[in-house]
Nucleic acid binder design. Structure first.
Length: 707
DNA sequence: GAGCACTGC
């Protein structure tokens, strides 16, 4: 049997061998605490309530008292005065200041929004929904969400004509801006969590700045812009917004003691385990631990080691409840992280960076920070995506440490030395500088601007913008790479919340009579993977799903799975998904996406919902319409070369085609890990390429024209 | 025959 890199195998030998090297050498930390954080961290008054009020055994304090207890409360008048006087304001606010829930209410009570709405963006759906719900409660007077206070996220618009305070995801405001580029619905726009620098917020910076100027020039109702951020680097934001005013707001979190290792540790996984047991011996049982690692396999391996070691009679300390947390996990498993550990038990959560910002786990007193993260980067010169384990930035390190100080004083053990820390990057590279920009370029073009001249806070590279424009031209969204005018096809493409290549597939599906199938495939590609591949039951998962596999490849296989799922009755779904190793949350999500895309198709007058039934050539040709620049041909045994950049690649082993070697395939993506792998494959024929993408084929010739 | 961090429309 093959041995996994991380020794998860359950063979007797594996475990025994594993146990031999399981007692990790203790990691020694520097005990002088040093600065606990570059930010000012203030200790809570005993009587004060944490703003989120999650963990609190003290008598209930009224909502209005809680509001008054927030640090931002004392600054209310000063803030309102600043907001009144400045058309753009940066609010630098620490965690726990209450900025997100309070500032919109202050503005509203002072009627600064006049006849318009206050829009507040959040990078994540859950945040937009939960903050809106909280503010509606605080606002009181029997109001429920959707009245004065509402939210708007994908698939869920909870607003009415009475709504004045509207929380929405940054992606949602970006989409709104494509219908009204000067955002006349709003008189105040607050871009919250700006320091996270999501690709959507970055584009919005340019859009609100421009909207403000345009409204000024045309004597329309002014647009107030408020940027709320936790970053220390205000100057950068301020310069961009014409040297606007910035104000600092202190927060309320508990002190976190930081420990660095005395010497560097290359095997950060083992060091994390060792550090956990050091804490485990010393800390009271109800003090929980959060460990940051990089990925699923590593996390499961680490969990296995901790569970094994915890059973060791030599190990001192209470019993251990070990949970893992990563996005690809089935929902139920994720929930167990939030359940408190039984009495006299220590909970340890091993997580990816999902616990950095997206998920808050109550009760964490200790954080162990490996200092590493798995990140996706994009290389515009090759068009290649790279998934790579790399060092985190200072920003991320402080964010991780802060997770130990949510409810009370905490501790953070960094599995790196102080000098290693000093060498890390200060900030995380903004997403816009490491992503495929095709969608962003299309969005900018809807504003009749050229992506080369868009006013970015931080410009993406010329290569990246060039590649995006080139792709849009190949797809027919523009007539030339310099054009700022979208073709009718390009305008239609911009209506879809999709990568332009996928929009193209849907728009042309009608002419191949396979819109139904195209919708299904694109929805499945657009959401997260529906396949679950547990490390220990991989063969079983692949066997049971074998019946769905198509000789045409992965896209048709996905279609088969979705079609079968649709025939399963509501009551049997959960069992069916479990038996077939299908992620139910993700397949239901894909179905939601499908419904939304179908609506967009109808709005674009794409005609009746045609189906190709069993004639799957039509679907495959239709996929070529959008993905002709993603084609690879066989050169020798299992080795392929991409038509576009002549990159040497292989099929990813998870593909249902990986044992076969068709002459020509199209792929959804190429990802470089240890090797360059193609994922999401469909076999195609050379003649189709000539027929469907004659322009492209003029500059890209196949090695062999025999198909 | 090997491994896919995380959001969002």
């Amino acid at each position: 049997m093959m041995e996994s890199k991380y020794n998860i195998g359950n063979t007797k030998n594996g475990v025994q061998k594993f146990q031999m090297k399981m007692k990790p050498i203790p990691v020694i930390f520097n005990n002088s605490n040093g600065p606990s954080s570059p930010k000012k961290i203030k200790l809570n008054d005993e009587n004060r309530n944490p703003s989120n009020g999650q963990i609190n055994n003290k008598p209930k304090i009224s909502i209005q008292d809680q509001r008054r207890n927030l640090p931002v409360f004392d600054k209310r008048n000063k803030l309102l005065d600043l907001i009144k006087r400045h058309k753009t304001l940066i609010i630098l606010a620490e965690t726990g200041s209450g900025k997100t829930t309070q500032i919109p209410q202050y503005i509203f009570s002072a009627r600064l929004q006049e006849n318009g709405k206050i829009g507040i963006t959040q990078p994540r759906r859950v945040a937009a929904v939960s903050v809106a719900t909280r503010v509606a409660q605080e606002y009181g007077h029997g109001m429920s969400v959707g009245d004065t206070v509402g939210y708007s996220v994908r698939f869920e618009d909870c607003t009415s004509n009475k709504t004045k305070i509207k929380f929405l995801t940054d992606g949602m405001l970006l989409r709104e801006s494509m219908f009204d580029r000067i955002l006349m619905e709003y008189t105040v726009v607050i871009l919250d969590e700006a320091h996270e620098r999501t690709i959507h917020t970055d584009v919005l910076f340019g859009i609100v700045k421009r909207a403000q100027k345009t409204r000024e020039d045309r004597n329309l109702a002014p647009l107030k812009i408020i940027i709320m951020s936790a970053t220390m680097d205000v100057d950068h934001f301020s310069r961009y917004f014409n040297n606007c005013q910035a104000v600092y707001l202190e927060g309320r979190t508990f002190p976190v003691n930081i420990y660095y290792t005395i010497k560097p540790h290359d095997d950060y996984q083992t060091s994390c385990v060792a550090t956990f047991f050091k804490i485990h011996r010393e800390a009271p049982p109800n003090h929980d631990v959060l460990i940051f690692l990089t990925g699923q396999e590593e996390i499961e391996a680490c969990a296995h080691r901790i569970r094994m070691l915890a059973k060791d009679p030599d190990v001192k300390g209470p019993s251990v409840k070990c949970c893992t947390l990563y996005a690809a996990q089935p929902g139920a498993q994720q929930m167990s992280v939030f359940q408190p550990a039984p009495p006299n038990t220590r909970k340890v959560v091993i997580s990816t960076n999902i616990a950095e910002t997206s998920v808050t786990i109550p009760g964490i007193r200790y954080v162990i920070d490996s200092g590493m993260v798995k990140a996706r980067t994009f290389h515009p010169s090759t068009g290649l995506e790279l998934l790579k384990v790399q060092k985190i930035s200072h920003e991320q390190a402080w964010q991780r440490a802060g997770r130990a100080g949510r409810d009370s004083e905490g501790h953070c053990y960094r599995i790196y030395t102080r000098s290693q820390f000093e060498l890390m990057e200060k900030t995380t590279t903004p997403e816009i500088q490491r992503a495929n920009l095709a969608t962003v370029a299309l969005q900018i073009l809807t504003l009749e601007l050229h992506p080369n001249y868009f006013d970015f806070l931080d410009k993406p590279s010329k290569d990246a913008v060039g590649l995006a424009c080139e792709q849009l031209k190949l797809l027919g969204a523009v007539n030339s790479v310099d054009s700022i005018i979208l073709t009718p096809l390009g305008r239609k493409m911009s209506k879809f919340p999709l990568d332009p290549r996928f929009s193209k597939i849907l728009i042309t599906a009608q002419q191949y009579g396979c819109l139904q199938e195209a919708l299904t495939v694109v929805s499945l590609l657009s959401g997260e993977s529906i396949l679950i591949n547990p490390v220990t039951k991989q063969a079983e998962a692949q066997n049971v799903r074998q019946k769905f596999c198509s000789a045409y490849g992965d896209h048709v296989t996905l279609l088969n799975i979705f079609r079968e799922f649709d025939t399963v009755g509501q009551n049997n779904r959960r069992t069916w998904c479990h038996e077939h190793f299908i992620n139910m949350r993700n397949i239901l999500h894909a179905r939601e996406i499908r419904a939304q895309l179908e609506q967009v198709c109808k709005k674009c007058d794409l005609g009746v919902m045609s189906s190709c039934g069993g004639d799957l050539d039509r679907l495959r040709k239709c996929l070529v319409m959008g993905l002709f620049m993603n084609v690879a041909e066989l050169v020798r045994d299992h080795h392929y070369i991409t038509l576009d950049k002549k990159q040497s690649v292989q099929f990813h082993p998870s593909s249902c085609l990986h044992r076969q070697q068709p002459h020509l395939v199209l792929f959804t993506e190429v990802v470089q890990t240890n090797k360059c792998y193609l994922r999401g494959l469909t076999t195609v024929e050379a003649a189709w390429l000539q027929e469907i993408a004659p322009e492209y084929m003029k500059t890209h010739t196949l090695r062999s024209n025999s198909s």
